[in-house]
Computed example of a mutant assay.
Amino acid sequence: MKNNTIALFMPSKTSFYDGLFNSLKKAFEHHGYEVTGGCGFLSGIKLDLFINKYNPKVFFEMNRCKSEINNFPKNILHICWLVDLLGRKLENITGSEIVYFFSTEWMKDFKHSENCKIGWLPPASDPEEYYPIKDHKKIFNSVFLGHIPNPWSNDLLNRIVCEDSNKKIIFSDVLNQFENIWGSQDSIVNNDIYINEVIDWLRKNNFVSIDITDKTLRYDIGCRIIRKARRLFFLDWLLENIDIEPMGIFGGSNWKNWSKYKNMYQKELLTTKEMNNVYNKTKLLIHEGVGFHFRVFDAMLAGTPVIIRKSKQDNDFGGIATMFDENIEYISIDINKFHKFQFDDDILNDISDRAREKVLLNHTWFHRLSQVVKDINDVI
């Protein structure tokens, strides 16, 4: 590629996106590219001025596809890294020449045109930001990093999902029907499938010609319910069955509104330095999801063992057991079986050492973007 300038954009100006932008920028630069851009999408005149000034041949944007940008130049390769659907349907993700998926569940259900190249781009980490701190005192037996939705307000609970002349279904009805099922099941699917489960249930309740089109409602059903249900279900299970206390929770202040967890809540971490310090202060990091998350790789690089809820999909494409050895490089917890896991320091140290070594060898941002660089050269 004669012009080696890449425009890199995160969705907005937050501490998380700032850190991620800097790590991706360094990785692209190590691959020989000049990187410009920032945190916060450009549009209209600002986008035109930016393109005229830097003349990039590639735009790499998280969570924005080409069709969502008015008058985007046809001669610029656009890459969309889809980390959050934000209430959109998969069919709305169009226009970009390359689409990378954070979730393999989205990827396998995505219907794309012949002119669109697709791939899986899981998270990675940055060894300059995450590393073991010698002689750091362990304050917590475990920590959880992540946000939690607020308890549902009456206005949100009473939103109408579907109605006809005889009856109506409100959001609280959906919660009562699906929240416990989704929170306890051993697999997780893409957002559209959760929506379709609700639509099928509505049809069985004699509603016809149903579609849930409101983006906020789709997001709440397809994402917020699952996030809240799975996180609290796993944390509740761990607290009842395994000695993970004292546990520290780091994330948004919404945790204060959940009575069981408000005393465990610490604060929101705003920098990679703060996160690395917390990883080094705990014996274990808790991860409740299926597959990979940024915090999994970050903790591994920091030398912190990760305890993960076992899933039916762990050995499938995109599953953690396809990249790391179960109970050798991470701790797998099957909530359907009773565990007598002992936090032996020697065992934990062995797990953390092996995991860190593997991330350094295969899962830094430089490694991850190697495929992106190859795909760019193939397409241009």
Rank of each mutant, 00 (worst) to 15 (best):
F101H: 06
K89S: 12
K108F: 03
N92W: 10
H112F: 09
T94L: 05
L90T: 08
F102L: 08
S113R: 15
F110P: 09
W120A: 06
D126T: 05
E128N: 12
F101T: 01
E114G: 08
L85D: 13
E114C: 04
P127D: 05
T94D: 11
D126A: 11
C116Y: 01
S113E: 09
E105S: 10
S125V: 10
C116F: 12
L86M: 06
E91T: 08
D135Y: 10
E91P: 02
F102T: 07
F110C: 06
I93T: 04
E97S: 11
I93K: 14
K134L: 07
F102W: 14
E97M: 05
I133W: 01
P123F: 10
H112A: 14
D84E: 15
I118V: 12
S125P: 02
V99P: 03
K111A: 13
E91G: 08
S103A: 08
I133E: 15
I93W: 14
T94S: 09
D126M: 01
N92C: 12
S125Q: 04
P122H: 13
N115G: 06
E129Y: 13
L121C: 13
E129T: 13
F101I: 00
S103L: 05
L85G: 02
K108L: 14
E97G: 13
Y100T: 09
R88G: 01
W120S: 03
S103I: 00
M107T: 00
I93N: 03
T94C: 12
W106D: 14
Y131W: 06
Y131E: 00
P122Y: 13
P122M: 06
F110W: 08
D135C: 06
P132Y: 02
E105L: 03
N92L: 07
P127K: 07
F101A: 00
M107L: 12
G87E: 01
D84A: 15
S113C: 07
D126Y: 04
L85C: 01
E91A: 13
D126S: 06
F102S: 03
W106N: 12
W120Q: 02
Y131S: 04
F101D: 01
S125H: 07
Y130G: 02
W120H: 12
D84N: 14
I133T: 05
K138W: 10
P122R: 10
K117R: 15
S96G: 13
C116R: 04
R88M: 01
T104P: 11
M107Y: 11
T104F: 07
N92E: 15
G87I: 01
L86V: 10
K138A: 03
D109M: 11
K137L: 14
E97N: 02
H136F: 12
C116V: 15
S96N: 05
Y130W: 01
E105Y: 01
H136A: 04
I133Q: 00
